[in-house]
Nucleic acid binder design. Structure first.
Lengths: 221, 221
DNA sequence: TAAATAGTGTCTCTAAGACAGTATGGA
DNA sequence: TCCATACTGTCTTAGAGACACTATTTA
């Protein structure tokens, strides 16, 4: 009566050379062995406290990364999505700076621009599309994109991240007003970005109470 | 390795005398036999096409209602939420006019105001809270609350529904401007609400292309 | 001092709310 | 004719974008 296959799939997003990109791994087992797909795996009822913990474990095991932001996306369910039978995929999406993926240096991880994706196995294409839509939607009114940059960043850098996500140029004055009123950033006193051949920009960081809050809040939910 | 209990729980919301209310049923089986809880049940892999279909079936079977709006809320998961073991609850929420529940006349269904809820079994309290938050959040920028009124309604009636959901008075001119620009309503030509002792109000209905669209769109997702 | 980009002051324009007026039914 | 409520025209006010100006570094 209850022969349901229960798995976790993760959409690890970052901002690379091809714009917003997703991490794919070649599948080690059937079905679709050898095909690039989302990092995923079975729930381990003995090890995982809940779906959130399972997603953290899958990401850590398969990509070597402790993600700073992880949120449940949705459950993808049904008889048709997996040839093995009626299945539930608990889908989570994570945001991470590009440098963190490079630093982890996991061999099999391949980054593909979300606009360059070809067909993926199962309904992974649908899952990625839903994650991208969610991220873009939340980016309009939140500080989510901060998790795509490193710990220290300038406002012009952050604005370019928002613009890459939204796919349109943003007004500089409005962007800075919005950031000021969100009130989630703090200036790194005395630290400037001197890497440019022009006026250095003030460096900022996420205020500590927001650095993990967003991800942790979702655990209960 | 994969002993996961997989169920569906539904949050059926309506606008009753106590404001926004949720439908509860006394549980017929252990655990928590006889305790009021959300309508739910196991996935039937032989009958249900997917989680959405399972939620529709549960609502039809246990409350007698074909809901006009149903959307996935989230998956609630973990080792601790159900005494039977590691479980996944696919949670869906539905909106329905009060009259439809009365017409269905299912004996066991009890409506409780969401602000009057006492503790519920499992994590059903958390699930209801998440559904209410989602509905309130979506009500700010969408026509979702239209599914809480009957087929024909006046703008003043609809405004009172929005106000009951948001818990605050709304500006009449702004409300009507917003509805006009959402462009999801159509006037029922020549039909007025004559039940008041003052000037009758124009009756409106959801435009046909929106009557089911919202619910259906979510099937793929 | 010129070039380049960071950062800010201010004007304009759009959209939301306030208010008051007109419209239309019943008593 | 009066009352109650539906509906609408318009003024005011708050927020978003445009623009231009100042600031600070390297070459």
């Amino acid at each position: 009566m209850n022969e349901v296959i229960c798995t976790v799939d993760t959409v690890l997003l970052t901002l690379g050379d091809d714009g917003l990109s997703v991490a794919l791994l070649k599948r080690e087992r059937e079905p679709y062995k050898g095909v690039a797909a989302l990092p995923g795996g079975y729930i381990h009822v003995d090890k995982d406290l809940d779906g959130y913990g399972a997603a953290l474990r899958v990401l850590k095991t398969k990509t070597g990364i402790d993600v700073p932001y992880l949120e449940q996306l949705a459950a993808f369910t049904g008889a048709a999505r997996d040839p093995r039978g009626w299945s539930v995929s608990l889908a989570y999406y994570a945001l991470v700076p590009h440098a963190v993926i490079a630093a982890a240096g996991h061999p099999g991880v391949k980054l593909v621009g979300v606009d360059r994706l070809h067909t993926l196995p199962f309904d992974h294409g649908t899952i990625v599309a839903a994650a991208v839509e969610r991220l873009r939607s939340k980016s309009q009114y939140s500080s989510l994109p901060c998790f795509l940059v490193g710990e220290l960043f300038t406002l012009p850098q952050l604005q370019r991240v928002y613009e890459a996500l939204m796919g349109e140029a943003l007004n500089k004055v409005s962007f800075r007003r919005k950031m000021a009123e969100l009130d989630v950033l703090e200036a790194a006193e005395g630290q400037m970005d001197a890497s440019s051949p022009s006026r250095p920009a003030q460096l900022y960081r996420l205020r500590p109470e927001f650095r993990d809050r967003l991800g942790l809040l979702k655990r209960g939910l």
